[in-house]
């Protein structure tokens, strides 16, 4: 298996508590990996560590030619890593002082230094892609939860990231908006975009993922194709979890 994204030995402690314990994970280009598991088990922390929103204590993150050693990551390493990973937040976290279009453009103009016209064109393409072509001038406060999360996804898409990280993208949504957000993620999971998705939507994980990773207690317990994990899990902990949620 050729990995172009590789995580090895990733460990994160909060005080005495080891939240991530020696995580190894390898993603092939275009692969869609869903992470499932009980709450408080380190799934979100893993994603946040990959983007250095929480700084991991040990381990290595390799993104193509970018190699970051967690223990001695420089500011430049962290910025480079962030610029090559898109992050979709559970609570959308849109910039409240910027319109939908500006939210999407911000990473292009401020971070990449694109001229405004070019960034506007790209943002308009993305707005169409996320089904909000007519809402580009709306501020987040004027958008529904589902629309806000679609803009959140659009903002991450604009980066053309090597890896997109979804941190429970539908958990904060009213049930009526979950469908449209999942539909959008399905649409961009076209086999070219590598994705790591933390989700509680088991049906969605099963349908969209090439591989499902089950985590518990800060470790990866088992991983495999969706049919195997959902139909024929080897580890008793996985089966117990799936019985509880299923």
């Amino acid at each position: 298996m050729s990995c172009n994204i590789e995580i090895s030995g990733l460990t994160k402690r909060f005080g005495q508590n080891t939240v991530l314990n020696n995580i190894d994970l390898c993603l092939k280009p275009g692969e869609r990996v869903a992470i499932i598991g009980p709450s408080g088990t380190g799934k979100s922390t893993l994603l946040r560590c990959l983007n250095f929103l929480d700084a991991p204590d040990e381990g290595r993150i390799t993104l193509g030619d970018l190699k970051v050693d967690a223990a001695r990551a420089s500011k430049a390493d962290i910025l480079a890593l962030r610029r090559r990973t898109g992050f979709v937040f559970q609570n959308y976290a849109l910039f409240a002082n910027k319109s939908a279009r500006q939210n999407i453009m911000e990473g292009l103009t401020t971070v990449r230094g694109w001229p405004a016209a070019k960034a506007t064109d790209r943002a308009n393409q993305i707005l169409t892609r996320i089904g909000l072509a007519d809402r580009g001038d709306s501020f987040p406060s004027a958008l529904s939860g589902g629309q806000q999360q679609r803009v959140g996804i659009g903002r991450a898409m604009a980066l053309d990231a090597d890896l997109m990280l979804f941190d429970e993208p539908t958990s904060a949504l009213d049930p009526e908006w979950v469908g449209e957000v999942l539909d959008l993620i399905r649409a961009i999971a076209d086999g070219r975009q590598t994705m790591l998705i933390v989700t509680h939507e088991m049906q969605f994980a099963r349908e969209i993922a090439d591989r499902v990773v089950f985590m518990e207690g800060g470790r990866i317990v088992e991983q495999g194709p969706p049919d195997q994990i959902f139909g024929n899990a080897r580890d008793e902990r996985t089966r117990a979890f799936l019985r509880r949620v299923g």
């Binding site: 929103l53 962030r82 990973t85 898109g86 976290a93 910039f95 911000e106 401020t110 971070v111 991450a156």
Partner: peptide
């Protein structure tokens, strides 16, 4: 909201940029 700091950082903004712009 703290999450806006994180969102700005996550798209690769420096601390100066995210303070000034967001």
């Amino acid at each position: 909201d703290r999450s806006q700091w994180e969102a700005a950082a996550s798209i690769g903004m420096t601390q100066g940029q995210l303070l000034r712009r967001i």
